[in-house]
């Protein structure tokens, strides 16, 4: 048996990737199961999905804690958490990034495959949905399933939901990624501080769970404490404001769901710590002063 853990963000289709991979393995006569982990996650928040493949029936129903392969659909996730957690000794990580495997920095040196799935998806599908492109990269990097089975699974699974043409385009995205995937070894040494949680004892727990704003070892909790949650890394596109064109009408300031636009000297300014890159401001600006550009992360 081998196990794959997918790391993505809600809405990127990690769950569909896990399902399509299982279908591809099934088409080759294997037993396969896949499932996502459910939580309160919204589109953009980190999520996980799992796939198990075996030659015999699979009876384990648990989450995957010691995967053979880790697949990362969103590059920003390798900055905030140790995606290698629990990865088997000779395991491998497959990452969506424009970087070469040797340029990727993780908690330890590991076998690593990279592909710029976002660019492939934008080019072929016109949307930054990378879940099909990444499947091609897995086929190439692991050799566990053929690219033909991946294509078939995508056409069956995505075609059923999005129509035949979309199914074929997604298969093409996988094939393109398959051809462009690089395999190598990632750098180690990156340190991750385990994120602390606020876990009061029964005695410490306020009556009715009522909490005022307070500092804890896990950071701020209570009223207004979400301000410490930086949502800027959810973004694929970033709004750039042309101050010359901005007439200070404040429409973007009003409409921004994140409330992360402020007015400085009568001109709109974005706080990128929180901007999720929805593009509403650019769509609504009456003078077209805002352009959405692909986010490039250092």
């Amino acid at each position: 048996m081998y196990e794959i853990r997918f790391h993505g963000r809600g809405g990127q289709g990690g769950r569909m990737a896990a399902e399509a991979y299982a279908l591809a393995a099934f088409l080759e006569g294997k037993y396969a199961v896949s499932f996502p982990i459910f939580g309160a996650e919204r589109r953009g928040a980190p999520v996980k999905a799992f796939t198990r493949v075996d030659d015999k029936k699979i009876r384990i129903k648990t989450q995957i804690y010691q995967p053979d392969y880790v697949v990362v659909l969103d590059e920003t996730l390798i900055e905030t958490e140790d995606v290698l957690e629990g990865l088997k000794e000779d395991g491998m990580v497959i990452i969506n990034t424009p970087k070469k495997p040797e340029e990727v920095e993780l908690s330890k040196p590991v076998k690593c495959a990279t592909v710029d799935a976002t660019s492939i998806a934008l080019e072929i599908l016109g949307r930054p949905i990378t879940n099909t492109a990444i499947l091609g990269a897995i086929a190439k990097a692991t050799g566990k399933v053929s690219i033909e089975s991946i294509e078939k699974a995508i056409i069956e699974k995505f075609g059923a939901r999005l129509g035949k043409e979309a199914g074929e385009k997604n298969a093409l995205a996988a094939r393109t990624a398959y051809e462009k995937t690089l395999v190598g070894v990632a750098k180690g040494g990156k340190e991750f501080k385990p994120r602390k949680k606020w876990l009061p004892t029964v005695e410490e727990m306020p009556i009715g769970g009522a909490i005022a704003t307070m500092q804890t070892e896990a950071g701020l909790v209570g009223i207004g404490s979400f301000i410490e949650n930086k949502t800027g890394d959810w973004r694929t596109f970033k709004p750039i404001i042309n101050k010359e064109k901005c007439i200070g009408c404040k429409l973007c300031w009003f409409y921004c769901p994140e409330g992360c636009i402020s007015m400085q000297d009568g001109k709109a300014t974005v706080n990128y710590d929180y901007c999720k890159g929805c593009g509403i401001c650019a769509n609504e600006c009456p003078t077209k002063a805002i352009k959405m550009e692909r986010e490039v992360r250092a």
């Binding site: 809600g10 309160a40 919204r42 979400f226 009003f254 929180y274 593009g279």
Partner: peptide, 25 residues
Amino acid sequence: NIKDLPDEDYFTPGHTACAGCAAPA
């Protein structure tokens, strides 16, 4: 109108609504 609104917010950024959700605005 929009320009009569105060700068002060009682609803902070950092919430986890989907990008583009109308509800937080």
